[in-house]
Amino acid sequence: MHPLEERIRTFYGSDFEALALEVFHYQYEHVGAYGEYCDYSGRTNPNTLEEIPFLPIRFFKSHEIISSELKAEVVFKSSGTGGERSSHLIGSTDLYCNTFRKIYRNQMGDPKDQVILALLPNYLEQGESSLVYMVDHLIQDTQSDLSGFFLNEYDALIDRYQKAVASGKKVVIFGVSYALLDLAERHPDLSEATIIETGGMKGRRKEMTKAELHQELKLGLNCDHISSEYGMTELLSQGYSQKDGLFVPGSTMKILIREVNDPFHFLPNGKTGGINIIDLANLYSCSFIETQDLGKLHENGFEIMGRFDHSDLRGCNLLVQ
C-alpha cells in the first residue's frame, strides 16, 4: 500500500490542501495522461489548490487514467446514455470500499441498523457500474436478508419495505430517478423510508428540475423529503443531500467552482459556474476533475444547478435548475 493511501484512508479533513498537493505530485509523475495534460497546461508545480490543473472529464472516454505503478483491479463504466461510455480503471477496490463506507456511515448512518433496498434497474442491466458495486457492498453490510436489489419488481419492493418496517429497522431506498417515479405512480406509503435518488432519467422520461422531481416523489411516496446522492463513474467519493437539498461532500472530496469561460479562475460562494472536484480517493487515477456540471458553493455544502450544453446525460447527475 502506498503511504499516501494510508493517509487518505484515515483522513477526516485536516489540512486538505497539503495532502492534495502531495497527491498531485504523485499523479503528475505516475499517471501518464494526467502528467501530459499538466505539461500542456504549463502548470506543473502548484502551490495552492487553485493552481492545480483539473483534467476534463471527457479524458476518461479517450485515455486509460491509471498509475503506472499498478494494474486495474476492476473497470467501472458510465451508463453511456449520451453515447460512448467513460471508463474508470480502479487501482484499489479496497480504497473505494473504505471511502464510500466512511462517507455513508458519517452522513446516512450505519448499514447494520438499516435495511437497504435498491431500485437501479438500468445499472443492473448494463453492468460495470460503480454505483451498483457500492450499493451491493452496503447491502451486504446490513447483514439482513430483507435488503436487496429490485429490477422492475415494485410490488415486491413495497412488500419488502413493509416487512422491514415491521422488524423495527430503518429503511433506506436507493433509486434512479425514472424508476422512483414509476414507483411513485403506485402511491405506496413509504413515509418511514429514507429515499436516496441517484439522478438520471436515462431517456426513459422527460427531464425535470430537481425541485420538480422531489415534489412528485414526495407526493407519490408520501415522504416529507427526498435525499440525493452525488457521485459518478469517475469518482470514488460521494456527497449526499438531506432536507435542504445541499450536497455535503465526504471528507476526501472538495468542490471548487470555476468561471465557465476561464477554467483557471475560481468563483466565490453563491456564484454559479462549472464544478471542479478534488477526490483524494482517486489516488491511483486522477483526483482533479473538471466536470460538465454547473453548480454553486454555499457555506454548508454545494448545489447542482444543471450541466453544460452538449454534455452527456450523466449517469448519476439529473438535469436541474
Results as ranks from 00 to 15, higher is better:
147 S>T: 09
149 F>T: 10
304 I>H: 03
297 L>M: 11
226 I>W: 09
146 L>V: 08
305 M>F: 12
38 C>Q: 02
133 Y>T: 00
271 K>W: 05
290 E>Q: 01
279 D>V: 02
14 S>A: 10
262 D>A: 12
257 I>T: 05
312 D>P: 00
41 S>P: 00
301 G>V: 11
48 T>N: 09
39 D>Q: 12
35 G>L: 12
96 Y>L: 15
321 Q>A: 09
63 H>Y: 14
187 H>V: 01
210 K>T: 15
226 I>E: 07
285 S>H: 04
17 E>G: 05
233 T>C: 13
40 Y>L: 03
178 Y>M: 06
225 H>E: 11
260 V>C: 04
244 D>W: 11
95 L>Y: 15
43 R>P: 07
61 K>Y: 13
57 I>W: 06
2 H>I: 06
247 F>N: 12
314 R>H: 09
228 S>W: 11
159 D>H: 14
178 Y>S: 02
12 Y>D: 07
298 H>R: 08
145 D>Y: 08
229 E>A: 07
219 L>K: 12
33 A>S: 11
167 S>H: 04
306 G>M: 14
120 L>M: 01
126 Q>R: 11
57 I>Y: 06
206 K>H: 01
2 H>C: 06
251 S>A: 15
314 R>K: 05
206 K>Q: 00
235 L>P: 04
203 G>V: 02
106 N>A: 14
134 M>H: 00
191 S>D: 01
199 G>P: 12
253 M>L: 13
67 S>R: 06
189 D>R: 00
262 D>N: 15
316 C>Q: 10
300 N>R: 15
241 S>I: 15
10 T>P: 03
10 T>V: 13
8 I>M: 14
30 H>W: 11
7 R>M: 11
110 D>P: 04
34 Y>K: 03
73 E>K: 08
181 L>N: 03
164 A>D: 00
285 S>G: 08
122 N>E: 10
163 K>A: 07
36 E>K: 15
44 T>R: 08
85 R>L: 13
266 F>K: 03
195 I>D: 01
294 L>W: 15
58 R>Y: 13
179 A>K: 04
153 E>A: 13
19 L>H: 06
321 Q>Y: 08
291 T>I: 00
177 S>T: 14
315 G>E: 13
117 L>M: 01
20 A>V: 06
134 M>D: 01
189 D>T: 02
30 H>A: 01
292 Q>H: 09
269 N>D: 07
278 I>M: 12
304 I>R: 04
93 T>V: 15
233 T>M: 08
5 E>A: 07
189 D>F: 00
40 Y>N: 02
51 E>W: 10
68 S>N: 08
136 D>V: 06
235 L>W: 06
216 E>G: 11
32 G>K: 14
123 Y>E: 06
12 Y>S: 05
238 Q>C: 12
243 K>N: 15
75 V>F: 11
129 S>Q: 04
